[in-house]
Amino acid sequence: MIRPIASLGRGTLEGLSALGRAAMFLAQSAVGIPSREGWHLWLRQMHFIGVMSLAIVLVSGLFIGMVLGLQGYTILVGFGAEDALGQMVALSLLRELAPVVAALLFAGRAGSALTAEIGLMKATEQLTSMEMIGIDPLRRIVAPRLWAGFISMPLLTVGFSVVGIWGGYLVGVQWLGVFDGSYWSNMQSSVAFVDDILNGMLKSVVFGLVVTWIAVFQGYDLIPTSEGISRATTRTVVYSSLAVLGLDFVLTALMFGELG
């Protein structure tokens, strides 16, 4: 009887302690805003985290846009409302799919790589040796990655949305014969800059911060063994995905729901 309670208590305490460590870690790392001297570190991470994720994000955006075009058309045509396809594709992407799917892909591509990279640096004592040289790894290693992820995510989301809308156009207009003018004009009249575009961007900023934070913290806090790295990489993808989906609901409720 006592054992489950004790293990629940231990689990809760460990969870709270990890949360505290993660919060302190974020506070200490986030102050390492890219300086003039460190801009090349930040730029390199922007390339690794942002540019290298571009291909998977754009290709996925294209396919999701195409699927939206196809599915949307088959549903809307039943009501004779296929002219609203552009509106449906754009709103689905800008409000939900682009920020969420781009963040999930980002967690799988860049997040896991960040965890494994930092974890391996920890396991091979590179972080410790940096500390002993008098360099704070939170500023030199973690901060550029954190900021690069934070900035890359909204940019990737923009790319995802643009390519997705084009994918919907490709299928809906070019293939299935929806009128070109109604695809774009319906989209233009129904998409609001603040409500749809900015809110979607705000989501991607939050997701970018959370996913990168989880990834770098898991790498920094892992047990420095091969098993530890493997577990931490898995945790990054699982926690990031759950955090993105959970936060998406909260943010959607605040932005578009009754709570807003």
């Binding site: 004592e125 590179q126 500390e131 040289i133 008098g134």
Partner: peptide
């Protein structure tokens, strides 16, 4: 503490070289 460590050097058992830098750049790093 980091300022004080600039006055120290430590040789690690594993070497702990930065794997993304060459031998030259590792020594030039500090």
């Amino acid at each position: 503490l980091f300022r004080m460590r600039r006055r120290m050097g430590m040789l690690f058992q594993s070497g702990a070289l930065f794997s993304d830098l060459s031998v030259f750049e590792n020594v030039a790093f500090p």
